[in-house]
């Protein structure tokens, strides 16, 4: 009985709610198509959005920190274009990857300086840099499409690396474990939460707010560059407009996972479930032949609902509590 109650309270939390939605989606999908539950399809649905879900990990940190980074998709495009152009002009692939990662770090540092040191609104800073980094990517490749990477590089993105798993998926799971340890079990993670709750309180308690924010933005830049390189390897060719608009999906994944847009609360567990929901939902929609645009629309609705529903539930709770108090006083 007690365990039943425990399960019930777990279900009432946001993560529990997400989990039950996930179960429903999985059941519906598996009745729609017999291919859905096969191992190949399950790996495939991960691989198709692997870059976005890697970005969602670091975006979780940034949103919990009460900031936002809209420039990730542009940094992805920039890194991908950079390795293509460097390799095209004779730089060895290994060096090209390293330079692209450093460029990602530089982009993150630039964002971070404006946000953390100059204290500008992160939304405006990353919005304008979203345009600017995309512009740099366009300057690099103009309107060409660059391909012909070395075979080992393409294989990294397209062929299984360890058993049936491709490299990008292994990278994702390693990063997930690292992210969970840092966010949930380290001092740095606690600082991220404190700053997200109240930047002033954090400063008065001696937390170095600026350096935490700077670290997060640099990490975001590096991870975005990594995602861009993986994307280039998976597609085998690079264009100036690659990964355009990915930030919408990434932010949706994070917010649906129960991370508050105002900062200060959220968990990677929730984000992981929301990633699974979105991936399975998209896969299910694709299996039932809905167009890509329709899928984007559904994700858009999901984004709004993911904030609206908890808001309404909270208002409802507050209302019920007030009525209880009034009723108690009347007695």
């Amino acid at each position: 009985m007690a365990t039943l109650q425990k399960i019930f309270t777990r279900l009432k939390s946001w993560e529990g709610f997400l989990l039950s939605i996930l179960v429903v989606i999985v059941i519906i999908n598996s009745t729609q198509s017999p291919a859905y539950l096969s191992l190949n399809n399950q790996i495939n649905l991960f691989v198709l959005s692997i870059e976005k879900i890697i970005l969602a990990l670091v975006m979780t940190f940034i949103i919990i920190n009460a900031e936002i980074d809209l420039s990730v998709a542009s940094v992805m495009g920039l890194a991908a274009c950079l390795i293509a152009v460097l390799y095209d002009s004779g730089v060895p692939m290994g060096w090209a990857i390293l330079i692209a990662l450093l460029a990602g770090a530089a982009c993150g540092l630039f964002n971070g300086l404006w946000v953390a040191k100059a204290k500008l609104s992160s939304l405006v800073v990353t919005l304008s840099m979203m345009i600017a980094y995309r512009g740099v990517a366009r300057i690099l490749v103009e309107d060409r499409s660059i391909g012909d990477f070395p075979e080992w590089f393409d294989a990294l993105g397209q062929k299984p690396f360890l058993g049936p798993l491709p490299l990008s998926m292994i990278i994702f799971f390693v990063l997930l474990v690292i992210a969970i340890i840092i966010l949930q079990y380290s001092a740095f993670g606690r600082r991220v939460f404190v700053i997200g709750n109240s930047s002033d309180v954090a400063r008065y308690s001696g937390v170095k707010v600026a350096s935490v924010k700077l670290t997060l933005y640099i990490a975001s830049g590096v991870i975005a560059a990594l995602a861009g390189i993986l994307f280039a390897a998976r597609l085998g060719a690079v264009r100036g407009d690659m990964a355009l608009g990915f930030e919408l999906d990434v932010i949706t994944m994070v917010l649906l996972g129960g991370v508050s847009i105002f900062g200060g609360s959220g968990s990677l567990f929730g984000v992981l479930i929301s990633i699974m929901i979105i991936l399975n939902l998209r896969n299910g929609m694709a299996l039932s032949n809905l167009s890509g645009h329709m899928q984007t629309g559904v994700i858009g609705i999901l984004l709004i609902l993911s904030v609206l529903v908890p808001n309404l539930v909270n208002q409802m709770r507050a209302y019920l509590k007030r009525r209880q108090i009034v009723a108690a006083k009347a007695k």
Partner: peptide, 9 residues
């Protein structure tokens, strides 16, 4: 685009 982005910033 690059110039525009920097300008806004």
């Amino acid at each position: 685009d690059s110039i525009l982005g920097i300008l806004i910033l």
